[in-house]
Design a protein around this nucleic acid. Structure first.
Lengths: 161, 161
DNA sequence: GTTGACTGACTAATATGTTAGTGATTGAAT
DNA sequence: ATTCAATCACTAACATATTAGTCAGTCAAC
């Protein structure tokens, strides 16, 4: 029996659209030996001089457990430094190194150029619409949204049919 | 030195907006013991009766190497069956089981309900705008987009500063 | 009938996502 | 001074993402 839901899969559309955008930037990023996440972090650090891990988590949308590994690798690569804060031994300060600063100064302009190319192709209106709609969705976050009532939990693992 | 790029990080905005949507569906999906990816696959199978792995990859935006593992686990859980095609031994047919059919019949309506709730909260216009803009971006895929020229590759791993 | 390009699923290795939980540290209330 | 909840980075365990490559099966050309 075929089951077709009334709504198209919206998160999946986001996934596809995001990939369609990202595929134009990925070659640039990997050309410099970085991963997407590492570039997000360097881009953020390029605007803030020093940041704490949890700030980077929020800004770059990377969960804390992933962040630990990413920062460790970036530290090994000489792209960042980590230093415990004097006043609060729980907290950590992350900074760029001269090496990553140089890297960003080369990579950044290429990213901007690619944006311009995409803007030409998509049309500036579409880019503008994108920013607007994204901001609206993100703003909607503030208004609490109800959740459907869930039925009692079954253990589907042990149901044969 | 602070470096601020001329364009906001658009793929990152997609990531955030997608997460803002998904967080309203995730609890429903995990309540039934599924992952996001598993649900995407079941939803697709619910509309197609039988699919080949590479079709599922395209439809659900999951890369082939991930698909192997996901399908293996779903087969173990009794959610799908895999069968080699008679005519072409390379190809495989994936189908739902009575168990997963029952699961989708319970889960599907809850997802639809949650969409309605979100539509109320976001406003129907925003949902409509979302579908429109996403489709535009995805449609833009067809027009080939140029790539910025990349400088000669350096090995940033071994540069000190 | 062999060859050779191609296809489709799969494997391998590494990085990240996701959920739950730990342990040290802090700060407010006792 | 002590207790207690909260905070923050981190660990653990598993699932998925990403890139590259393997391997058997197919199909067309020779």
């Amino acid at each position: 029996m075929l089951r077709k839901l009334a709504y198209r899969n919206l998160p999946q559309l986001f996934l596809k659209a995001r990939e369609e955008l990202l595929c134009h930037f990925r070659p640039i990023i990997t050309h410099f030996g970085l991963t997407e996440q590492q570039w997000r972090i360097l881009r953020a650090l390029g605007e803030h001089e020093e940041m704490e891990p949890r700030e980077i988590c929020e800004t770059c949308h990377i969960l804390s457990p992933s962040m630990t590994g990413v920062l460790s690798r970036m530290e090994e690569m000489g792209l960042i430094t980590r230093e415990r804060m004097a006043g609060d031994q729980r907290r950590v300060l992350v900074r760029m190194t001269p090496k990553s600063d140089k890297l960003v100064s080369e990579l950044g302009p290429l990213i901007v150029e690619q944006y311009k190319i995409i803007e030409q192709s998509f049309g500036p209106e579409l880019i503008q619409q994108l920013y607007e709609v994204m901001d609206k969705v993100i703003a909607a976050e503030r208004a609490p949204i109800a959740r459907v009532a869930l039925p009692p939990k079954k253990d589907w693992t042990n149901i044969t049919g």
